[in-house]
Every structure is written in C-alpha cells, then in structure tokens.
C-alpha cells in the first residue's frame, strides 16, 4: 500500500526501524527535527527507546567526540548537531578524527557514526544560523555525505547511513521537513552513490542538491508549460557521487544547470560542473550554468535573504541561458 508521508515523519520512521533492528543504535541529540512544528514527532523515539535517546548539554564538539569514540568502540550512535552552523564546533571531530581513523589505523579501525544536521537558509536565520556545510564537508575525504531531498530518500538513506561502517554526515534542510511524497512500497535502504532521476526530460539536465531538487522540479513544471522538458537529477549522496548517471543524463540533453544552496565559490555545484566539464565535455552543447547562493553571509531581513538564496526563478533563467547556447 502506498502512502504519502512527510520528510520529518519518514526520518523518524527510519530511526525507529534502525533502533529496532540494532540495539547498539542510539540518538544523541534532543531535537533532530529542529524547533518547528515537526519537533513532537521525535517523542515516539523517546517513548519506545527511553534508554537510547540522550539529551546532551550544548556541547557540539563534545557530543561529536563522544559519538566518534563510541563508534570506534563498537556502538552506532546518531549524533545530531542541530543547525548546520553549529557543525563548526564539531569540525575537528568530524574532519580530523572520524574521517581519518580508518586510513590512519591501516584499515583496522572503523568509525560507524552518523552525524545529522539541518543546514542552509532556514528563514530568518541571519548569518549565524544559515550556513551550508555539505560543500565544505566534501573536501574531507573519508566522510560519506548524504543530501536527501524527499521523504522517500531520507528514509532509505538514513537506514543506509546508520548501517554503514563509515562515518556519514547527513545534511537535512529545515525547509524540507514538511514536504510530502508517496512512499515506495516496500520501503528499503537506498544504496549510497545512486543518483535518482526525479523527472525525465530531453532538453536540459537540472541537477539539484538537497532543497535544490524541489526548486528544480518547480522550475521544470513551469518550463514544461512553454514546451521545455527538463530532466531533474538528484545525486542523493555527494560522497560517493554517481558520476555515471549524471554523465548519462547530460549525454542525452547536452545541457546542464547545477543547483546548490551553498555559496557559489567551491560549492558542490562547482565540483559537479568541473567533473562534467572534464569527463563529459563532448556531450555539452552550451556552457554549464551554476545556480548557487551569493558569496556573502546570509542577511537577516527577508528581502535580503531572498535576494541571495537561489530558487525556481534563478533556475528558469539559467535554463533559458543554457538553451540559448
């Protein structure tokens, strides 16, 4: 039976299933769904597994270290760092402990910790609660980086993240929590490194990352009304990256627009554009366009915030440019 579910509900379901399946899975963090209306959904986790949900003090570095050490000692903790911006407090533990441990030990140690945060422009976050981590994290070899855009994806990808022997960083987005899709039947873990073509189209490939996928789908609907058929590709994980699916799509459309809420310079969009330029240049009939955030801290006032944050309008403009050659 198929049912519609919100991203937040699917996230909670994944945690419940993982904790049911493996007694070494625990949640360190009080509100992985933020402080908004979905917050109450996590009460079910607390009720069913009261001994495996831990409310930490405000100590992002400390809980990250705790999760890393626990994972190295055989547990499978999920460490929630709340807002992505707080991830900087945990940077040493993520980048210089978790990510390096397997190689540094010559393959003798594994660190199956799962980090989770809600990153990006959440609305009125001002500079210090609006940071986007996934592109910065992508320069840390040894981390698996997950950017789910839908309820179906967050469910299947969280299950894989928790089961993975590697340190995994799941970057959610506050504005995705209420978004609903029809869930797959049956539900299953989604392997990392498998991009998903969210919409088929012949004229242009729009690759969206995280909330960029929803913006890309909205833009594609508008473009379809004028006869432009855009294909929307969601990589779902940045590390590992499904290069083959991206290149195959570009080989059919000949045009690529990459959408990323990270600031433009050294964004994930930039890395994907470089990869396609290097490996798929012969498919391209127009320059690759990147749609990303302005290279500025995110200002507080709503019109200023909107001005620096990419959405469907910016994508449509970039698609028109790509089609013009």
């Amino acid at each position: 039976m198929t049912e519609r579910q919100s991203y937040a509900r699917a996230f909670v379901d994944a945690l419940l299933e993982a904790m049911e399946e493996d007694a070494s899975v625990s949640l360190i963090g009080s509100s992985p769904l933020g402080l908004g209306p979905q917050r109450g959904l996590t009460e079910e986790i607390r009720r069913r597994f009261p001994d495996r949900v831990f409310d930490p003090p405000t100590a992002e570095g400390g809980i990250a270290a705790l999760g890393v050490g626990a994972a190295m000692a055989g547990a499978r903790p999920i460490v929630d760092l709340l807002t992505g911006s707080f991830g900087f407090l945990a940077w040493m533990q993520v980048a210089n402990e978790a990510a390096v441990a397997h190689l540094m030990s010559g393959g003798r140690l594994t660190c199956p910790v799962t980090f989770h945060c809600l990153e990006g422009v959440r609305g009125a976050g001002a500079p210090q609660h609006s940071q986007t981590l996934h592109a910065m994290l992508w320069n840390v070899p040894g981390l698996e980086i997950v950017v789910p855009a839908t309820a179906a994806d967050v469910h299947g990808l969280m299950l894989t993240a928790i089961r993975s022997p590697n340190p995994t960083f799941v970057c959610g987005h506050a504005k995705l929590l209420g978004h609903e899709v029809v869930m797959p039947d049956p539900r299953a873990p989604i392997p990392f490194g498998r991009a998903d073509i969210k919409r088929r189209g012949r004229d242009v490939t729009i690759l969206g990352i995280s909330i960029g996928v929803l913006h890309a789908l909205a833009a594609a609907e508008d473009l379809a009304r004028e006869g432009i058929e855009a294909e929307v590709v969601d990589p779902r994980t940045l590390a590992p990256l499904d290069e083959a699916t991206i290149l195959e799509s570009v080989s059919r459309t000949g045009r690529l627009v990459v959408v990323d809420e990270a600031p433009l310079r050294a964004s994930a969009a930039s890395e994907i554009a470089a990869m396609v330029a290097e490996k798929g240049f012969r498919y391209l009939r127009a320059p690759i366009r990147r749609v990303a955030r302005a290279d500025a801290p995110v200002p507080f006032s709503p019109p200023l915030e909107a001005a620096v944050t990419p959405g469907p309008a910016e994508i449509i403009r970039a698609v028109r440019e790509a089609l013009a050659g």
């Binding site: 890393v68 050490g69 190295m72 000692a73 055989g74 210089n96 441990a101 540094m104």
Partner: peptide, 24 residues
C-alpha cells in the same frame, strides 16, 4: 580506539568509548 594527536580529543574519544561500554 583511535590514537589522536589532537590532545584534547583523546578525552572526548574515551568518553565515547565509555558510552559504548556502558551501552554494552
């Protein structure tokens, strides 16, 4: 667990190891 050259990390990693031991 990991042998860290980041001097303060060691205390955090050991706390995590203690967390895992307690869980087991």
């Amino acid at each position: 667990v990991s042998t860290s050259g980041i001097v303060g990390s060691v205390v955090g990693l050991a706390a995590g190891a203690a967390f895992a031991c307690k869980g087991r």
